[in-house]
Design a protein around this nucleic acid. Structure first.
Lengths: 211, 211
DNA sequence: TCCCGATGTATCAGCGCGATACATCGGGGG
DNA sequence: CCCCCGATGTATCGCGCTGATACATCGGGA
């Protein structure tokens, strides 16, 4: 209760990046940008408090690096500020592994899905499949809602609004097809191991090839 | 200053919806949902404070409607809470027209573009074109940044992250093509039919927009 | 009858963004 | 030679917005 549970996506991303190699805040934020895209990138106003909390939870350690690169005897300025390098602790690695293994709804909700996908290379194949399929049915279900809402009000809306929604709808449909491609790639890839692709693990009725 | 300037998108949307007809908060929020899509829809935690502020700025009036629909003599309950209907004032209509005429960068930034497009039926054709073209170049410019960033790091990222960014890139490219279609539709519309574009008059005469 | 979902108004904790502040450093132009 | 500028680097604050929650009425189905 008192843990205050920050949004897990930033925590997850930070742990994953620091699992590759220790680094300082500025560098971390840049990597965050290239991980999640220029959008989705978190600001320092989120990053630094998050780092602070992770240190408090003993998932990270922070080492102040004086960065006395030269033999310069530390001039008049008493405080020669430099980098603060963050590093994963054992608990941190454990926590990251636990988050990697997460395959429930929290893994495929809008905000979280991107990060989980970005770390797929370090994720178990079965978990990958569950997340992809969960994401797919989540999208499909939203799609159904939007579609009916759209047809119900189709005649009562002007052409521009309609066009806006049509484009949004097509984007979502395109994302479903993209997910299908990823899923089928995963299944194909598994041919080297025992493949149980015919089991009925579908959470929702998914017709093969809607159209 | 003291005006506190709330995010203009909600204000714009609310004014636009109330310009069609007065209504109460609950109804307003539903329309907001079908205007901007289920995502993008604002929560009551945003809507009610916004309404309060707009009333304080004399852009809206709020009328408490007892909702004694029938001749029912108002049974035992002393407090028969009912709807609070919001209505545009003259200043409100003026403000909405001013926002409709907005064609600067604020009109085509990510957050604002959707609302402006949703009200295109009530927007001057020239303003429509400027907004569409502004939006297009904004997207194109971001696209260029992402593309170079992607090729620079192409080899240093695992396949899943790459795929994620590739899909995002294609979505943006698709949106550009979509804008191109809208722009060309606008231009075509102007050459074929001589719209009474030069007249003043009607504030809201909606011409049948392209399919 | 009782519960449930829709209608209806309203608030609150907390999160994340954007702006801002401060400080060091290398380099290019006046 | 200096000064500005942009990149590097850490950090905070205001505030809009979300999701949860609260409360109240109503119609309808089990």
């Amino acid at each position: 209760m008192s843990v205050s549970r920050r949004g897990e996506v930033l925590e997850f991303a930070v742990l994953g990046l620091l699992a590759e190699s220790p680094m300082h805040g500025y560098e971390l934020r840049k990597r965050l940008g290239s991980l999640l895209g220029p959008l989705r990138a978190f600001s320092y106003g989120s990053l630094y408090p998050c780092l602070k909390e992770l240190v408090a939870r003993d998932l990270l350690t922070q080492d102040d690096v004086p960065a006395a690169t030269t033999s310069e005897p530390l001039r008049g300025r008493p405080s020669r500020r430099s980098k603060i390098v963050y590093r994963l602790t054992g608990d941190g690695k454990e926590r990251f592994q636990a988050l990697l293994a997460e395959s429930g709804p929290s893994a495929w909700e809008d905000d979280n899905f991107g990060v989980h996908l970005a770390f797929f290379a370090r994720t178990d194949r079965e978990v990958r499949l569950r997340i992809l399929e969960g994401r797919r049915s989540r999208l499909e279900e939203r799609l159904a809602t939007v579609r009916t809402a759209l047809t119900r009000t189709k005649e009562r809306v002007d052409g521009y609004t309609l066009e806006l929604h049509r484009h949004g709808l097509e984007s979502a449909e395109r994302e479903v097809r993209w997910l299908d491609k990823l899923i089928s790639a995963e299944q194909h890839d598994s041919t080297t191991r025992r493949n149980r692709s015919t089991d009925r693990s579908d959470t929702t009725r998914t017709d093969p090839t809607p159209r």
